[in-house]
Amino acid sequence: MAFRAAVITFPGSNCDRDMAVAIEKVSGVPALRVWHGDAELPHRLDFIALPGGFSYGDYLRSGAMAARSPIMRAVVQAAESGVPVLGVCNGFQVLTEAGLLPGALMRNAGQNFICRTVPLTVESNQSLFTSAYEAGEVIRIPVAHHDGNFFADEATLDRIEGEGRVAFRYAEPCNGSRRDIAGILNASGNVLGMMPHPERAIEDALGGHDGCRLFESVVGSLVAA
């Protein structure tokens, strides 16, 4: 059956098209595009992606307004029913604000917007998003954010580490994130939030293709299921 993916666009999203291109490149099927004001998602989705950008101009807090938009109620429901959900950059911020992932993304410790390709350690390949990587492998993926400084209290950090829910870690300090966390999973493993942009690393002409295997993992997990 054809892979059915949806990319959500909020006012101010700017990586939604890149995300759709990456999904189509890997799955061979164009992604459905969904607007923030829609109340319902397309039926029978295999994958939902929340893209990067500056939804609602980062009003109040990054991701705060988007997390309360009509479509997010449907995304939360879909996530709770097990549909794989990926949030990249602003999408990660939206997932924490919506309560689908723990912690918060604060202003970068150095105050600067960081836009460069960084080395990431794949902490675990035991997830539907990372199965095509080797555990411990270092990959190169671009970051582009001002608010990527992952914060959670020590008890929460210990819990998500203990449960193997750190998917990616910065291989060298990047933005002040607690324990260099770059991407985390929810307790069920079907929601991944990450600051780096895998959709910007899908072919060598763009500077690298290490992001491809994330999408291959998702597509592969559904074929295997």
């Binding site: 109040l60 705060a64 723990p102 918060a104 604060m106 914060f151 209290d153």
Partner: peptide
């Protein structure tokens, strides 16, 4: 629910 992020 909105004005503050109780995590931080």
């Amino acid at each position: 629910k909105l004005l503050a992020n109780m995590v931080i």
